[in-house]
C-alpha cells in the first residue's frame, strides 16, 4: 500500500504536471543536465527530510506558529544543503547560485508538508516527500535533456551530436538555451501528460 505514495508522484500525480507546484525555481536551471540533476537531488533531499521532521513533530507544533515552524525547518535544511554543495560540489553550487536559496519557497515542499506530512506518520511522509521530490526531478531532467541536446548538441556537457552532422549544415537551436524555451517545453509536456491522463483536463 505504500508503493503508490512513492511512485504516484512520478507520473500521474506529478507535482509539476498535475498539481502545478514548484515551477518557480525549476526552470531557470534546466539549460544543462548537470545543474538540473543537482537541483533535483537537492529538492528531493529537502522535501523528504522536511516531511520526515515535521511529521515527527506534528503533535508538538502549536497551530498558531505552524507556518513559521515549517519555514524555519525548511530554510535550515536548505542552508545545510547549500553549505554542503559549496564544500563538496563547488562547480555545481556555482551554477545554481541563487536558485539553491529559492528551494525554500518551492511550493512542493510547503505544499506536501501542509497537505500530507502534518496529517500522517513519519514513514509514509518520508515516502511521499521522496516521491514528490523525484517527480519534480524527472520533469527537470526531461526539460534539461531537450534543452541541452537541441541547444548545445550535448548531454551532461559531453557532445553527442556527431561532427559530421554539423558539417552537413546542422546547427544548434539557439532558442533552446534561452529562458522561453523552458516554458514552451513544459507547456508541451503538460499537453502530452494530460492527453494520456484525461481526468486532469481543465474544463
Amino acid at each position: 500500500m505504500k508503493i503508490p505514495l512513492l511512485l504516484g508522484p512520478l507520473s500521474k500525480n506529478n507535482p509539476i504536471l498535475a498539481q502545478i507546484l514548484g515551477i518557480c525555481s525549476a526552470l531557470a536551471v534546466t539549460a544543462k543536465m548537470e545543474p538540473a540533476l543537482v537541483m533535483g537531488v537537492s529538492v528531493t533531499a529537502v522535501t523528504a527530510l522536511a516531511s520526515l521532521i515535521l511529521s515527527a513533530l506534528r503533535d508538538a507544533i502549536p497551530n498558531r506558529v505552524r507556518i513559521i515552524v515549517q519555514l524555519v525547518v525548511v530554510s535550515a535544511l536548505v542552508i545545510i544543503i547549500d553549505q554542503l554543495l559549496k564544500a563538496f560540489a563547488y562547480d555545481a553550487s556555482k551554477q545554481l547560485s541563487v536558485f539553491v536559496g529559492l528551494i525554500i519557497t518551492n511550493c512542493i515542499i510547503m505544499g506536501r508538508v501542509e497537505a500530507f506530512a502534518l496529517a500522517n506518520k513519519p514513514w509514509p511522509s518520508l515516502l511521499d516527500g521522496v516521491g514528490n521530490g523525484l517527480g519534480y526531478a524527472i520533469i527537470l531532467l526531461l526539460v534539461a535533456f531537450f534543452r541541452e541536446l537541441l541547444g548545445s548538441g550535448a548531454l551532461f556537457g559531453a557532445r553527442v551530436i556527431p561532427e559530421a552532422l554539423y558539417e552537413r549544415g546542422y546547427a544548434n537551436n539557439g532558442l533552446m538555451i534561452l529562458p522561453p524555451a523552458a516554458l514552451i517545453l513544459v507547456g508541451v509536456i503538460i499537453w502530452i501528460h494530460r492527453a494520456r491522463n484525461k481526468e486532469l483536463i481543465e474544463s
Partner: peptide, 23 residues
C-alpha cells in the same frame, strides 16, 4: 508556544553554526 519557539530557535541556530563552522 513561546517555549516551543525558543527551543526551535536554539536547536536550529546550533545546528547551522556547527555545519557552517565545520564546512
Amino acid at each position: 508556544t513561546f517555549l516551543f519557539s525558543a527551543a526551535m530557535v536554539v536547536v536550529v541556530a546550533v545546528a547551522l553554526t556547527v555545519v557552517s563552522t565545520v564546512l
